[in-house]
Amino acid sequence: MTKTILTPNNETLLTRIRKSRAAYFMLAPYFILFTLFTILPVLMAMGVSLTYFDALSLPRFIGWSNYLKLFLEDDLFMKALQNTLVLALVTGPLSYLLCLLFAWIINEFKGWTRALLTLVFYAPSICGQAYLIWNIILTGDRYGFLNGLLMNLGVIQEAILWMQTEKYVLPMLIVVQMWLSLGTGFLAFIAGLQTIDKALYEAAAIDGVKNRWQELWFVTLPAMRPQLMFGAVMQITQSFAIADVSLQLAGNPSVNYAGSTVVTHLLDYGGIRFEMGYASAIATILFLIMIGSNKLVQRLLRGVGE
């Protein structure tokens, strides 16, 4: 489709490379930086994870010890891993479905209502530190909005220390993360729905599609499969990287480590204790989890509507 320069097959690789000088010239600036700040760091993390390294003296090779220690001795890592999996398995799929659902409903609207609704759902994800407002909502005394509301309604009698009570930390983090999670994937869904040919729906109605649910399943979802795959990548990556929300709302360390995640654990070792080898082992595991779950979901989504 994009073949604009004709390259006969009998040319050697070297001639083809020489002929594409212009292309490499244009790629170079970006990919030099990309290599330096994305590829190299991943390889470095993997390498450093096999060493003891305090960022001052030279790294010392210690084999798999960091990984053994992580999985066999570090109970806090297990707690963090468990929290991360809970957060990711709840917020990942849920936010993905909500992105899709809201985009689908918004697609029924036109003009300024459509623009306004898009803004309302998308805005939290771009406001940076604005989620700190949840600190005020979840304040543990009776001045907190949630406590005030629930006490007014008579649901609770005494103020609840939301972020200091172990059993509430994770659910509340999930709520806040959900609020933050309608991001780029959501926009991709809205845009994708916009482009589906209306004639497809009319043809489907003639073929016996009776209601909007069938329409969604048989027409809409298959037609927007590329967007579904893109959105999945966005939501998965984001749901495994939860850290700032936990650090800012639940504190560091959170009560009984109820809000600690793999990333906060990593920051603890890398940023505070300067055990770079150990932190790199954590980073490598997180990297593998993210790539693995992305690949898995991509494979699943390839089957939508086929």
């Binding site: 994305t38 760091p41 993390a45 998965i236 990287a241 990333v263 990593l266 790199s280 980073a283 993210m290």
Partner: peptide, 14 residues
């Protein structure tokens, strides 16, 4: 498919 949190320590070194 992975976020910058994974690479922040080597990034700092680089």
């Amino acid at each position: 498919m992975f976020s910058w949190t994974v690479t922040q320590i080597p990034n700092y070194l680089i």
